[in-house]
Simulated assay, not measured.
Amino acid sequence: MTRIGMIVPSSNTALEPATSRLLADRADVTVHYTRIPVQSITLDGTGAAFDVDTMLAAARLLADAEVDCIVWNGTAGSWLGVEHDRQICAAITEATGIRAATSTLAILQVCHDFGITALACASPYTDDVVEAIVGEYACHGVGIVSHAEWKLTDNLSFGRQTPAAVAELLSAAAPKTEGAQGVALICTNVDGITVTGEVEEALGIPVIDSIAATLWWAMELAGADGRIPGAGRVLEQASFRHRAKKIVTELRERTGCDRTTVRIDDAALGLHVDLCAAESCAPGVRSIQHDPSLDQRKLETVMWLEEKRQVLVQPAFVEPPYPPQALRDVYGVSAQALGPVEREGELVAWFSAHSIGERAWTADDLTAMDDARHALRSLLNKN
Score class of each variant (00 low, 15 high):
residue 150 W to Y: 03
residue 85 D to Y: 05
residue 131 E to F: 08
residue 159 G to L: 11
residue 81 G to F: 05
residue 142 V to W: 01
residue 118 A to E: 02
residue 185 L to S: 05
residue 162 T to H: 12
residue 114 F to H: 10
residue 187 C to F: 03
residue 183 V to K: 07
residue 156 L to H: 11
residue 119 L to Q: 02
residue 157 S to T: 15
residue 83 E to A: 12
residue 81 G to M: 07
residue 74 G to V: 07
residue 144 I to S: 00
residue 175 P to Y: 13
residue 139 C to I: 08
residue 168 E to M: 15
residue 152 L to Q: 13
residue 170 L to P: 15
residue 146 S to A: 07
residue 137 Y to D: 07
residue 96 T to I: 12
residue 75 T to F: 03
residue 129 V to N: 07
residue 140 H to V: 10
residue 180 A to C: 12
residue 94 E to M: 09
residue 124 P to C: 12
residue 134 V to D: 00
residue 183 V to Q: 04
residue 140 H to L: 09
residue 68 D to G: 06
residue 186 I to E: 06
residue 142 V to M: 00
residue 132 A to F: 06
residue 90 A to R: 13
residue 159 G to D: 06
residue 63 A to L: 07
residue 158 F to K: 15
residue 164 A to R: 14
residue 89 C to V: 09
residue 124 P to N: 10
residue 170 L to A: 13
residue 64 D to R: 08
residue 113 D to R: 10
residue 64 D to N: 06
residue 90 A to P: 02
residue 160 R to I: 11
residue 172 A to S: 15
residue 122 A to L: 03
residue 126 T to H: 00
residue 175 P to K: 14
residue 99 R to K: 13
residue 62 L to H: 00
residue 119 L to C: 05
residue 62 L to E: 03
residue 117 T to L: 01
residue 75 T to M: 04
residue 66 E to C: 09
residue 141 G to C: 02
residue 106 A to C: 05
residue 127 D to F: 04
residue 68 D to Y: 02
residue 136 E to A: 03
residue 92 I to Y: 04
residue 156 L to A: 14
residue 183 V to D: 04
residue 171 S to N: 14
residue 109 Q to N: 12
residue 161 Q to C: 14
residue 99 R to G: 07
residue 105 L to N: 12
residue 176 K to H: 11
residue 76 A to P: 00
residue 113 D to V: 15
residue 114 F to I: 11
residue 169 L to N: 13
residue 121 C to Y: 08
residue 148 A to V: 09
residue 141 G to F: 03
residue 65 A to M: 13
residue 119 L to H: 00
residue 170 L to D: 12
residue 146 S to P: 05
residue 132 A to P: 08
residue 186 I to P: 05
residue 185 L to Y: 04
residue 90 A to V: 10
residue 148 A to H: 04
residue 115 G to C: 03
residue 87 Q to H: 11
residue 132 A to D: 01
residue 85 D to E: 13
residue 69 C to I: 10
residue 157 S to P: 00
residue 173 A to N: 05
residue 172 A to Q: 14
residue 112 H to V: 11
residue 166 V to M: 08
residue 80 L to C: 03
residue 173 A to M: 08
residue 164 A to D: 15
residue 151 K to V: 09
residue 81 G to N: 04
residue 127 D to Y: 01
residue 134 V to A: 00
residue 164 A to M: 14
residue 63 A to Y: 04
residue 151 K to A: 12
residue 77 G to P: 00
residue 160 R to D: 14
residue 119 L to D: 00
residue 159 G to P: 10
residue 88 I to A: 02
residue 177 T to F: 08
residue 160 R to T: 15
residue 73 N to Y: 03
residue 67 V to W: 01
residue 139 C to F: 00
residue 175 P to I: 15
residue 105 L to W: 05
residue 73 N to P: 00
residue 162 T to Q: 13
residue 169 L to C: 11
residue 92 I to T: 06
residue 115 G to N: 05
residue 121 C to V: 13
residue 131 E to G: 10
residue 79 W to G: 09
residue 146 S to Q: 02
residue 137 Y to K: 08
residue 180 A to P: 05
residue 175 P to F: 14
residue 129 V to Y: 03
residue 135 G to Q: 04
residue 155 N to M: 03
residue 108 L to D: 01
residue 143 G to A: 14
residue 123 S to F: 02
residue 160 R to G: 12
residue 62 L to K: 03
